[in-house]
Simulated scan of single mutants.
Amino acid sequence: MIDKISNLRDAAIGRIKEAVNSAEVEELRVKLLGKKGELTEMLKDLKNMDIEERKQFGQKANALKTELTEIIEGKFKELSVKDVKKSLSSGSNFDISLPGTNFKLGSLHPVTIVQKEIERIFTGMGFNIVDGPEAEEEFFNFEALNIPKHHPARDMQDTYWLENGSLLRTHTSPCQVRAMQKYGAPLKVIAPGRCFRNESTDASHENTFFQLEGMMIDKNVSIANLIYVMKLLLSEVFQRDVKIRLRPGFFPFVEPGFELDLNCMICGGKGCPTCKHSGWIELLPCGMVHPNVLRYGGIDTEEYTGFAFGLGLTRLAMMKYGISDIRVLNSGDLRAMEQFSVR
């Protein structure tokens, strides 16, 4: 058997040297070292050998496999160089000395960067990520959120209605109701996604934007839990202390409700078009989940309470990266997006 190894080696090296192109070399590699190659077939006889013969044959076979692999790789390189020289000598326009084509790498959209970062923060706190349809049912977008028909709060959200009776969702809050109905309590979820409102555009308003809604439901949840989570979120996002203010606000799906405003990072609170010259950006509406919303979600209001919040991902990206006009983010202008190098 040792002689078979030697004979195979001599024959194989000769055949490799005689190969005139890469296709022949690849064919030899498969015939010699492939799953059904000559050397592989020889190794199947190991089971019929005694221990000492098996040891010697195995060592020789492995050494030959390594040697042939190196010879084959060297032959591939040799033929590759010959092909290039032949191309150059034949008057080809290919110039091997020229630099290669520079392909530009893309980068994540700033809103996507912020969304991934916030998802990381919340999953670290035990929250799950949920999703829902962008073409939503009226029940989930309004009624299940304590906004019945003809309620004045509907006037706050100019809506895109579809011919089939559904609508383009005006927030991602419907995902919270769907999550309550599906998972019950206790519950900790966030729902990032795209939203639509028929609004006039300006430096801080767009008809297509991104939100992240969140909800926590458990026994004995209080406003203190809400404030703690919001402060932790913003400090993690901006990696420094930020100036905020909490003031009463009305939202039908929470009671009590609050507006959490962030000191404008574009102007440092001095006033600019982005913050409507107020020095503050409305960033985080939040509050304790209204009992009616819990009931629509199938939650026992005698046993559970919870808080909810809505974060404007688009506005947060503006604050984080100093983008003064929201319209830049939907412009498709690659010159604006190329500065964000996170991939």
Rank of each mutant, 00 (worst) to 15 (best):
D333E: 09
R15F: 05
A11K: 14
N93I: 07
P248N: 08
L284A: 04
I51P: 10
G165E: 09
E259F: 09
H290R: 12
Y183A: 02
V177D: 08
L79V: 01
A61P: 13
I113W: 13
Q59G: 04
W161Y: 14
C195I: 07
F238V: 07
L88M: 12
K116E: 11
N220I: 03
N93R: 15
Q176D: 04
I113A: 08
M319A: 07
S87T: 12
P152R: 06
L33C: 02
R15Y: 06
C275W: 07
G91H: 04
K65F: 10
K243F: 10
V229E: 15
S166P: 11
P192Q: 06
L316S: 03
N292K: 11
S89Q: 12
C275K: 01
E70R: 13
I118N: 10
V111L: 02
N141T: 11
P110Q: 08
Y296T: 00
S200L: 03
S6E: 14
S6C: 07
C264R: 07
P186E: 05
G214D: 00
I323G: 02
A317I: 05
H151I: 08
L162E: 10
F210G: 04
M125I: 08
L260G: 06
R295W: 12
D95P: 10
L33T: 12
S235A: 07
G297V: 09
V242I: 01
K219S: 05
A23W: 03
G332H: 10
M216Y: 15
K55Q: 05
K182N: 09
K77Q: 13
G310C: 03
L283G: 08
D45Y: 05
T314C: 03
P248F: 06
L260W: 15
T314N: 05
N141D: 09
L212A: 05
K75M: 00
F142A: 01
V25C: 01
V221L: 10
I244E: 11
T112F: 08
V254N: 06
F196G: 01
G310V: 03
I72Q: 04
S235C: 07
V289G: 11
C272I: 04
